[in-house]
């Protein structure tokens, strides 16, 4: 089973290379260890999502250009960012169903010698892990079960909604990421408003409101005494990790909740060296979690 080989075209998006390399580093390491091959995009542009509010057509053309680039490689696209996968999936479905719109968008792409034909599939990391590799394969890769760890998960909106386009998990009661966390032996805690937005998309318009949203989440997560929060989105991670001290300062709170990318947790359970998983790049110190996980190893060593 471990010999089964998967290949994807990796679509990084902009936020990860800009601010969240720890997510990319850890994801590449665990996927390699799981025998998943990542092929680089020949070139890419922003998925289009940030421009949807001001110019829907600009978003469509940008997404279609990426999809058309991908089609030439004959592989499914894998993204780490839910914003990217959500946008590319949505545009792919819309253009497949709406011939007139497809022709309009394709006439824009003509200049670059590209054409969208609707032949490409787009998956977010957690969808690929569950649907293509399977929970059993993840479980069998665990050599250091995280049985002493209690964590909370946060999916990120565009993994879940709108229901019409995500379709692989229940947006009201999401299970995929929970199952992925529990496959590692950790306990994944229920908490209030689990599926609620982190606030990141409105940063720059009204920071205070966004920080209040993130503060709410951190309150709910600390109310159930989670030892860490697990995310699968660069934007959510920035809200909870990068901005955690800012939230503490703004609202006079104290959290100290480590926020790990799921691949970091997966890597630790798979026995990868912590130094390979870019844990030192996290803003909130995670040494407590790490000690908890490695404790047994240290005693044995």
């Amino acid at each position: 089973m471990m010999t089964e080989h998967h290949r994807y075209l990796i679509f990084l998006g902009c936020a990860i290379p800009y601010r969240v390399s720890s997510y990319e580093i850890s994801a590449r390491k665990v996927l390699q260890a799981l025998n998943v091959e990542l092929v680089e995009m020949p070139e890419f542009n922003c998925c289009g999502l940030p421009m949807d509010p001001v110019d829907h057509k600009m978003m469509l053309v940008m997404a279609a250009r990426n999809l058309a680039q991908g089609e030439e490689q004959n592989l499914s696209i894998l993204t780490l960012c839910p914003g990217c996968s959500g946008t590319l999936r949505k545009v792919s479905k819309t253009l497949k169903e709406d011939k007139a719109l497809r022709e309009e968008v394709n006439s824009c792409l003509k200049d670059s010698g590209l054409e969208f034909n609707g032949k490409i599939e787009v998956k977010h990391l957690i969808q690929a892990l569950v649907e293509d590799l399977g929970l059993e394969k993840i479980k069998s890769a665990v050599i250091r079960p995280l049985t002493t760890l209690k964590v909370a998960e946060h999916n990120g909106c565009h993994v879940l909604r709108p229901r019409e386009f995500s379709g692989f998990d229940d947006p009201e009661d999401p299970k995929l990421l929970k199952n992925l966390v529990e496959a590692l032996g950790a306990e994944c805690l229920d908490y209030m408003d689990e599926a609620e937005c982190c606030g990141a998309p409105s940063i720059g318009v009204n920071d205070k409101i966004c920080l209040q949203l993130a503060r709410d989440k951190l309150n709910h997560v600390s109310a159930v005494h989670a030892q860490a929060l697990i995310t699968v989105c660069p934007f959510c991670h920035m809200m909870y990790d990068t901005n955690q001290m800012r939230i503490e300062k703004t609202f006079d709170e104290k959290y100290g909740i480590p926020v790990l990318h799921y691949p970091q947790l997966l890597g630790l359970a798979m026995g990868l060296p912590p130094a390979d998983l870019a844990l030192n790049e996290l803003r909130v110190n995670c040494s407590k979690v790490l000690n908890n996980i490695l404790n047994e190893d240290c005693l044995n060593g």
Partner: peptide, 21 residues
């Protein structure tokens, strides 16, 4: 990490020449 694939703004600009923004 492997090199970041290029953004190719020249080509992107050309295909976006008719969008409002």
């Amino acid at each position: 990490l492997p090199p970041l694939p290029r953004g190719n703004p020249e080509n992107l600009g050309r295909i976006l020449q008719n969008v409002h923004f």
